[in-house]
Design a protein around this nucleic acid. Structure first.
Lengths: 244, 244
DNA sequence: AAATCCGGGATTTTCGAAAATATTCCGGGG
DNA sequence: CCCCGGAATATTTTCGAAAATCCCGGATTT
């Protein structure tokens, strides 16, 4: 059922921007299978936008490597693979760690405020989802994911580099594609463990204490650990699928 | 006078792709002043494409930070500034040097072939333009620029990282915006000097000899030197403009 | 049997105009 | 004289349909 866009257009949101936001969110949450075609008719029925704003969105997503386009054959969701994941992770380590290092050197009180503030919000949400006693709803999971993103954004927010910011966001989006499926498995969110929160807490502490090397090393280690966990889960899944 | 697009569409080029290529090339060559609005009517008259392919192109360029869009107020060419330039350069150093290092470690004979081959083509073109005895035409300058780009692409072509490739290209585009104006000044191409060619020659030599640290250090130094030259030229230009 | 060559339907891409939105200009009031 | 509405104009955004292209299946040829 298409949503109602007639009332939208509040503020400065064009339909194209709205379509972009929604399709991107859906790709990041795996609503479209990697590699599957994004047919305009289907998107029109799903979202209620007409072709123009949809194409606008898809073209932007193409530049961000979330979709690929084939001349006169339309768009597809970009494939995922372990190799691609590690490329995104290692490149993110390169970018984020450098941006983090610079932020630790240059960050002022405002930066410290953003780091501790966003950590607090992450922490509160984390504990809340942890104590639910049931599966988290999509909204609850989305909120946690958003706060996690905001925290990492805050860490590097005093780097002074626009480009690192842009690239970091792009890579965060990519890696979210790999993480999200495991937020919503039967056994609950794989990453919803005290050890994860503790790790983030230590990163924040190192950051504001200006322990550059410790902070950066811990960040890199965290990224790699996440990659390893996902890799092992992916592998297990493959074996199940293959019946081995 | 709009160009004739009726015969185009050879191979798998859509009009949108064509528009993207041409507008991007024109932005990189400073055909549109930084900060100036890109009006659809004007673009339509200039290129002969209708709105849809033009918007398609602009949306893609937006994601690459070559244009900025304002909701319901259209698109503008992204501004340039010394700060922005240094951000692009320093970020490119981060990306390209790491990708270069990995290529030096992992590159096989094919990679060496690409490095030496593309250097040769650059070198030939360089010498040719140097001996012209007159101002280079736009085509001659474009050829030199393309081969310079190809050489830097070859250097990092064995990094094994897609993402670094993508980011490197994006940053190369950005920095070209700053370099191109000085390819075509009255006194001739500022960068058309033997010392520049010699530097690139040494980088290639270090690369195939697998002298990792020397190669990478020289690359970083080259990027920074270019930045300094442009900065001083920009400053001088400002003073002229201001009449000091 | 494999390869090639059509049609028909599905899909994307492009167009031109309508709708929505911004910008400019002008006259009136403070 | 300057500031504020408000119509007229310019521009962007969106729509729906036409044109171009692709895809699938069946018939024909080798």
């Amino acid at each position: 059922m298409p949503s109602d866009n007639t009332t939208a257009q509040t503020a400065d949101q064009t339909l194209g921007q709205l379509a972009y936001d929604r399709i991107r969110a859906d790709i990041l949450k795996g609503q479209f299978r990697p590699g599957s075609p994004l047919r305009l008719q289907a998107l029109k029925e799903r979202y209620g936008f007409s072709f123009s704003p949809l194409r606008e969105a898809l073209n932007r997503l193409q530049s961000e490597q979330l979709v690929v386009s084939y001349a006169a054959r339309g768009f597809r969701v970009t494939e995922i693979s372990t190799t691609e994941m590690w490329d995104a992770i290692e490149t993110r380590i390169l970018i984020d760690c450098e941006a983090f290092r610079r932020s630790i050197r240059r960050g002022d009180d405002d930066w410290e405020g953003r780091v501790m503030g966003s950590f607090h919000k992450l922490s509160v949400c984390f504990e809340r989802n942890l104590k639910l006693g049931r599966e988290a709803t999509e909204d609850e999971t989305t909120q946690l994911e958003d706060r996690h993103r905001a925290f990492h954004g805050a860490l590097i927010s005093a780097s002074g580099s626009n480009w690192m910011q842009v690239f970091s966001t792009q890579l965060y989006n990519q890696t979210q594609r790999y993480r999200w499926p495991y937020f919503t498995t039967e056994g609950g969110n794989v990453f919803l463990k005290q050890s994860y929160l503790a790790e983030h807490s230590q990163i924040a502490a190192h950051a504001v204490a200006r322990r550059e090397d410790e902070a950066v090393a811990m960040m890199a280690k965290g990224f790699r650990r996440t990659g390893e966990i996902i890799e092992s889960l992916l592998k297990g899944q493959d074996e199940v699928a293959r019946g081995t």
